[in-house]
Design a protein around this nucleic acid. Structure first.
Length: 661
DNA sequence: TACGTGGCGCTTTTT
DNA sequence: GCGCCACGTA
């Protein structure tokens, strides 16, 4: 055992500026000022979880901990940025040394510093889900399975299986048995696909999202100097949304915190809603077991919702067996509005009800931005969208493709990816397939030659390749453009590269292929603007891969008009509105049909319902259609959601909606 | 082999 | 409403 030696704060440390006791409630204060050592903070919905974390960081820094010795882990970039901004607003200290970001970005940061130790070359690519699927496709093609065999899983499904197995530390076969029993017969091929996929990733010098976690964890496990370095560096580790961590993330935290053991995890087991992508909320439930010295702090005062809403929330979650018992206590006063339970004839009426009520509320002075319609699955919103459009209610919908995942963005980015990492097979193929007359087959052949180009040779060497006569001309153009993007293989600035691609190649392609060319061109301009803040293409591409959203720009470009929000409950987590409608509160919709198979998944749906309810500040409407026009079966009776029957009748007011045309 | 067209079916999503 | 897939044609 090494000798323990503690550094004490010198006289130069500044005296704390923040009056913690005054600015925080007693429960928050206890967590923020906790003594070093492992700590579990159970923070209920709307209880100031983010506030607690940001004050904790400020507290550490004010008490002389250097920012570079702090690691703050979140799930989304938005959360990371928000917290760091808030810390910066609290204290005057320079926080640039602080490591704050998503698990993936921190993993990436470590791997970028030690790529070779991790088995990759500097400048590796990051593959998003689609890229990974493309690469898996090429791997599956080498497996010798009959391409006409419809029973064999698609690359996307194989990717899901491998990812789920990895993130839950389980065997492929166990995952197959549980989630994909019909693919069990292909277990050997799927296992082989994994082996070849791993090899392929090293060949193409590309990592998928899972690798950013798994390869960095592996590096920490296997490489003592690297492990030692980061264990020493991160004296204090803080983790947000701990209930949504998976095994790998749990291990990642444990290994980094092993030396100092100052791991503070914050979360709410009642809001764990991501088990289907590998999150295991046993991480949070069993934290006290893994860290026997851990102290637990509960923050239960809710500042968001009126007591009427919280009563429903508390009742809703009570039916769950596996949880830390806790009760949200309202800080706000009653508003005399009991959450409304609204049965409706069918989904059309449901849409009419929501629309009409939205208009009424708006007339009463409620800002449309303060209203949200939540649902279990995106397609549940179809009728609402149509009804809102019919009545001229402006709305924004959070769904579909993210900015950076759109085809035209990824097309253009593939040029940069190839230039930065010429071993990137996926990027190369995507790029050349944009040329007329080049499909999957031709791309394959071209790659066979291109992958043999020596590292130092100029991209103009591509000109001599054999290409279909149809693409002769554009091929020369492509080679020339690549050379312009990286003369002598030295990449120019990313904004310059993008300009070259768009002007020389992509604009023509977009004009010819996209009916909404104008919109796409605007997006590309946005991308160019975004890229200006980066000096190096590699850095820019990292952001492109890890960011997936352009929050600021997209919000600003939509203008200042008020909009009602339509969103899935999952995407609503962490947000709040004055008025919340939860629609399709019917068994088979919410909870979803597929969740009804097991108690565990129903519990997760119940947590999801809890998340939905706790988004409401003032008024909550729970609506459901009693009749559903089923596909092919004619009209079907729909049962109200079982979650509704778990809420005592006295806590809600049932509305009887009649029709008068 | 590339590419356009019509039909179908649909958890949830971050990186 | 949109993406994916299968199929047919050049």
């Amino acid at each position: 055992m090494a000798r323990q030696y503690t550094l004490h704060r010198g006289a130069s440390a500044t005296t704390p500026q923040i009056d913690y006791a005054a600015e925080l409630n007693p429960q928050q204060h206890a967590a923020v000022t906790a003594a070093p050592g492992p700590a579990l903070v159970i923070a209920g919905a709307g209880s100031g979880k983010t506030r607690t974390l940001t004050y904790r960081v400020a507290y550490l820094v004010e008490n002389g901990i250097s920012p570079q010795n702090i690691l703050l882990l979140t799930f989304t970039n938005k959360a990371a940025r928000e917290m760091l901004d808030r810390v910066a607003a609290l204290i005057p200290h320079d926080l640039t040394g602080l490591w704050g970001g998503t698990f993936h970005s921190v993993g990436n940061r470590i791997l970028r510093r030690h790529p070779v130790e991790a088995g990759f070359a500097p400048g590796f690519s990051i593959m998003d889900r689609e890229d990974a699927e493309d690469l898996l496709d090429t791997v599956v093609a080498t497996l010798g399975v009959d391409p006409k065999d419809k029973r064999f899983p698609k690359a996307g499904v194989i990717g899901d299986v491998l990812s789920f197995a990895l993130n839950t530390s389980r065997k492929i076969d166990d995952v197959l048995v549980e989630k994909y029993p019909h693919f069990l017969e292909f277990s050997p091929q799927i296992g082989e696909a994994r082996v070849r996929y791993e090899i392929k990733k090293r060949e193409t010098n590309a990592l998928d999202f899972d690798d950013l976690l798994e390869k960095s964890l592996r590096l920490l496990h296997e490489n003592e100097p690297v492990r030692d370095r980061y264990q020493r560096q991160f004296q204090f580790i803080l983790v947000d949304e701990y209930q949504d961590t998976n095994h790998i993330q749990g291990d990642f935290i444990d290994i980094l915190g092993a030396r100092h053991s100052n791991v503070m995890v914050v979360g709410d087991d009642a809001q764990s809603i991501y088990s289907w992508r590998g999150a295991d909320f046993r991480n949070i439930l069993e934290f006290p077991k893994r860290y026997p010295q851990a102290r637990t702090y509960k923050i239960e005062t809710n500042y968001r919702s009126v007591p009427e809403v919280l009563a429903v929330a508390n009742a809703a979650i009570a039916a769950n067996v596996r949880q830390f018992r806790k009760e949200l206590i309202a800080a706000r006063e009653s508003n005399e509005f009991k959450p409304a339970l609204v049965p409706l004839g069918d989904s059309g009426q449901q849409a009419q009800f929501v629309a009409q009520r939205v208009l009424e509320l708006h007339e009463e002075g409620v800002d449309l931005d303060e209203i949200a319609v939540l649902y279990r699955a995106h397609f549940h919103s179809m009728e609402i969208q149509m009804e809102f459009t019919r009545r001229g209610i402006p709305f924004q919908i959070t769904s579909g493709l993210r900015f950076f995942e759109q085809a035209h963005i990824k097309d253009v980015a593939s040029f940069l990816k190839y230039v930065v990492n010429p071993r990137d097979e996926v990027a190369f193929k995507r790029m050349v397939r944009l040329l007329p007359g080049v499909g999957p087959r031709a791309a394959e052949i071209l790659w066979a030659d291109a992958s043999k180009l020596p590292d130092e040779s100029s991209f103009t060497a591509l000109i001599d390749f054999k290409v279909p006569s149809k693409s002769r001309k554009s091929w020369g153009q492509l080679a020339h453009t690549l050379d312009e993007m990286a003369p002598k293989r030295q990449p120019v600035r990313p904004s310059e590269m993008l300009r070259s691609v768009v002007e020389a190649v992509y604009d023509d392609y977009a004009k010819a292929n996209f009916p909404n060319y104008e919109q796409r061109r605007e997006d590309l301009q946005t991308l160019v603007n975004f890229s200006r803040q980066y000096q190096s293409a590699a850095e820019f591409l990292d952001q492109l891969a890890l960011l997936t959203n352009l929050e600021h720009e997209s919000v600003a470009s939509r203008g200042e008009t008020e909009l009602v929000t339509l969103t899935s409950v999952h995407q609503a987590k962490g947000l709040e509105w004055k008025i919340v409608f939860v629609i399709w509160m019917a068994d088979g919709k919410f909870p979803s049909v597929r969740s009804l198979e097991s108690d565990e998944s129903v519990e997760e749906e119940r947590r999801l319902f809890y998340v939905a309810v706790t988004r409401a500040k003032d008024e909550l409407y729970l609506t459901y259609p009693q009749m559903h026009l089923g596909s092919g079966y004619g009209e079907m009776l729909q049962r109200p959601s079982r979650f509704l029957s778990e809420v005592p009748k006295a806590l809600v007011e049932e509305w009887e909606v009649g029709c008068r045309w």
